[in-house]
Amino acid sequence: MALLQVDHMTHFFSGLRAVHDFNLAIEPGEIRGLIGPNGAGKTTIFNLITGIYTPTEGKISLNGESLIGLYPHKIASRGIGRTFQDLRLWRHMTVLEHVKMARYSQLTYGLWGAFFDTALRRKEEVESEHRAMELLSLLGVDHLADQLVVNLPYGAQRRVEMARALAIEPKILFLDEPTVGMTPEELVQIMAIIRNIHQKFDLAIFMIEHRLKFVMELCEQIQCLVFGEVIADGNPDDIQNNPQVIEAYLGKDAVEA
């Protein structure tokens, strides 16, 4: 069985069919893409797998264990990390605090340690800080560790969000449009970073992306979603030459491709 397996997943938002009969199998270390026009249901698929919504029908399992009905935090600590399309950072926290926070479920000192500042707590907080700094330098934002995230430029905020998602030590990382609003140079850098973390952690990656060039270059397999249904599934070449994809998707954004 695959690392992440989704079978016949369907979801309705009170009458609106947002996702229909979606199937997915991601193997460890695989990079997979999900493309599709606006409103196709891509983010909804992320939210269904990560437990924000429970699918109306279908099965989801990670390493063979079902994820249906679990709280999002449980699913996250099982090994699914994610970023958000609309950057959900914590406005009163520094960059370092963000990454430390995501190591929440790895801390064992508990409430007792939190109240009484035990030796175990100090040890774990120090370790956690080391790990967080490592991730920040991997993402190239370690020099911003003490800054409040709200003061950072957009590209840096995206990197912080990725560092934070990596801090939960995921087996698979979900990236929801990681390149939105980035300049061409930032694009090149973020591509290198994604390749780097993929190799370093032997991480599976599932990404939603609008820039086709970007997905085509990074992903081994790509699915194209239109109105909640997968109309094409294959390697970048197949997708690029699929007439339905060209019609539904490239037709509009041909300039970018």
Binding site: T50, G51, I52, Y71, P72, H73, A76, S77, G81, R82, F84, R88, L89, W90, R91, H92, M93, M101, A102, Y104, S105, R164, A165, A167, I168
Partner: peptide, 11 residues
């Protein structure tokens, strides 16, 4: 500040 992000980060 952002409850959904907190949940997604295992909290």
């Amino acid at each position: 500040d952002e409850e959904s992000a907190a949940e997604a980060m295992t909290i």
